[in-house]
Design a protein around this nucleic acid. Structure first.
Lengths: 212, 212
DNA sequence: ACATGCAGTTAACAACCGTTCTCTGGAATT
DNA sequence: AATTCCAGAGAACGGTTGTTAACTGCATGT
């Protein structure tokens, strides 16, 4: 099934990826709506016109970045909220997974947090779609938990959205820690972990007593 | 105490406010990091160099916009979460207040949601500070509720932050409705109201059972 | 009445932007 | 071996940007 790409196409994908990487790096200090096409090509070391061989515009590149940042995250989501182990352990596992992800892909996390409400409409739309998919997958996982026995139609989805928002908020907090001075990192990581743990725990309690 | 401003200073504040208004309008379709100084002055009808009489840079203007958008919100916060009436009524009142605020100041809400994680560091910092103040005020209000009897030190603040995040998230959803087509507005407003109500209710339940 | 202060104007600068058109060299196809 | 295809290069375009300097006119304080 996997056909070896020709030298031609392989080289093209390589510069395409270089453009995406350079853009992501440049977006650490600005928003997508101010990212220039020449700025990106300059960072890669190619002519400005080469950009058009891969993307119609920087907004188009932004949509591609959304796929890269969120598309590969779906398999992880299910295990994050999977219903194995006691509640307390599940919370700890989920937060640990978030922290690891932020550590591994800080630029991706920043990009999503920044452009979710950013100034480029197609990118906002793409993020909205992906997050809605996440919520649906979380919903499926939540439905399998005995605690959700007898829940109404919209109730599961509203809890799923609450969880997704909470994950993003927590990821953003971990990112802020990562951006701060290194000597405060350990303390602040503990602090954020504690805060997120309590919030998750409280939401879990509300979940348990939903049908009262 | 209120000293009548001279013609001089009054006119200055007038153009300053015009710059802020124009910037806010321009920021509906882009992020602050791509907002040009000339763009703003052109919209007001004033020379580009006049900008410097009021702001050092567009980032500086952004910080001023944060004050305008959030500074006047503090008195409202307390009444929003004040502990009067039964829980169900309080939730409805809070969400109604949020909806009204989004309706009255949509551009302010969009600006805060967009620039909270935006590409301009001083503005992010200013928003972070204001939101932290909000959380503190919410904490004070929560402490007066009998339900919070016996809560630990950090617990109240973590709940306060959860509420603040929830308010912002809800406001953002109402804003999306406002940006959509008019014929869907009524339905989608009901939908968002219902979603936010359930989430608030669930958090309230978690709050009631926190000390188990 | 006169001198000062200062919000806003005018003009000019070098630097940057997105986009178009033309060209080239080497991989892909025949 | 000859031909086609196409990722990337090069040059040029009209237009925009932030910033500087020197100015004007009017409200202000003496």
């Amino acid at each position: 099934m996997s056909h070896t790409l020709g030298i031609r196409q392989a080289q093209k994908q390589k510069t395409r990826q270089a453009l995406l990487d350079a853009a992501l790096a440049l977006l650490e200090e600005q928003s997508l709506s101010s990212l220039g096409l020449r700025e990106v090509t300059r960072a890669v070391g190619v002519a400005p016109t080469a950009f058009y061989r891969h993307f119609r515009s920087t907004a188009d590149l932004g949509v591609a970045l959304v796929e890269e940042a969120l598309g590969s995250l779906h398999p992880m989501i299910r295990t994050t909220v999977s219903a194995t182990g006691d509640p307390e352990e599940r919370v700890a596992r989920a937060i640990d997974l978030i922290a690891r992800h932020v550590d591994g892909y800080p630029a991706h996390v920043r990009f999503i947090a920044r452009e979710r409400h950013g100034g480029v409409q197609p990118v906002r739309e793409a993020i909205r779609e992906q997050l809605a998919r996440f919520a649906q997958e979380v919903e499926v996982e939540l439905a399998e938990d005995p605690v959700s026995r007898g829940w109404g139609e919209g109730d599961l989805l509203m809890l799923a959205h609450l969880y997704v928002d909470q994950m993003l908020s927590t990821a953003s907090l971990f990112l802020e820690v990562l951006e701060g001075p290194e000597e405060e990192r350990a303390d602040r990581t503990r602090h954020v972990t504690q805060l997120a743990t309590r919030q998750m725990r409280l939401i879990g309690l509300g979940r348990q007593h939903w049908l009262d």
